[in-house]
């Protein structure tokens, strides 16, 4: 079986750990071997949270520099920062909604604008897909459903060996019942946004 390596980068509190859990559960449903690892020691203190997911017959649970097939950015600056994980064949999907780090607010560094971020990423990878995940989450009914929007974009782009149905089932099983409808709507919006 082919191996697909996915890196997800986000800022603490954006819900990427739940997103990777959903993908893991979906893979289990389809009997696709999956392993993941995450560094979340200070996740809730506003730092960067990175998950690595490896689908297929690999043993490692981490992804070396230059070896991600797919990079999913919950935040554009973090997508750019994770470019060391990519190669010329990597597909990058990122939200365009910036969350400037506090260091930028106190004048330690400048947050690059979106056009500059795209210009850095695009020539170094196979393709760059962008979407305004925050706006779509709001449209779905809850700004906290950004993670589901981005899951939708992964499936819409067809970059993972996972079926739409398996991910939807996993969303229903893994996330709170009260939010299931909004979550699925967010997922659909994300999926449609990259398909179009």
């Amino acid at each position: 079986m082919n191996i697909t390596r996915l890196i997800i980068v986000a800022v603490g509190g954006q819900g990427n750990l739940l997103a990777s859990k959903v993908l893991g559960e979906a893979a289990c449903r389809q009997d696709i071997p999956v392993r993941m690892s995450e560094i979340h020691g200070m996740a809730q203190r506003g730092g960067v949270v990175e998950s690595a997911m490896i689908f297929g017959d690999a043993h490692s649970t981490i992804i070396s520099d230059g070896e991600a097939d797919v990079l999913l950015g919950f935040e554009p600056l973090e997508a750019l920062r994770a470019l060391n994980k990519c190669n010329a064949d990597t597909i990058v999907i990122t939200s365009t909604s910036p969350l400037p780090p506090f260091t930028a607010a106190i004048g330690k560094g400048v947050y690059p604008d979106m056009a500059a971020i795209e210009a850095y990423i695009r020539p170094r990878v196979k393709s760059l897909i962008t979407l305004d995940a925050n706006a779509l989450a709001v449209e779905a009914g809850n700004v906290l459903s950004v993670n589901m929007v981005l899951l939708g974009s992964l499936i819409g782009a067809g970059v993972l060996p996972l079926s739409d149905a398996a991910v939807r089932e996993a969303i229903k099983d893994t996330t709170k019942a009260a939010f299931a409808e909004i979550n699925l709507k967010a997922f659909d919006l994300g999926r449609a946004a990259v398909k179009g």
């Binding site: 800022v11 603490g12 200070m42 809730q44 203190r45 506003g46 730092g47 960067v48 520099d65 230059g66 070896e67 600056l77 973090e78 750019l80 920062r81 470019l83 060391n84 990519c86 190669n87 010329a88 064949d89 400037p100 780090p101 506090f102 260091t103 930028a104 330690k108 560094g109 400048v110 947050y111 690059p112 850095y120 170094r124 990878v125």
Partner: peptide
């Protein structure tokens, strides 16, 4: 070969250290 692309022209990005809530 390592497939990391050359990132030497990237600007210095603002850090995102963890911070007290």
């Amino acid at each position: 070969e390592s497939r990391v692309s050359d990132l030497s022209d990237l600007p210095i990005l603002p850090q995102r250290p963890p911070n007290l809530c």
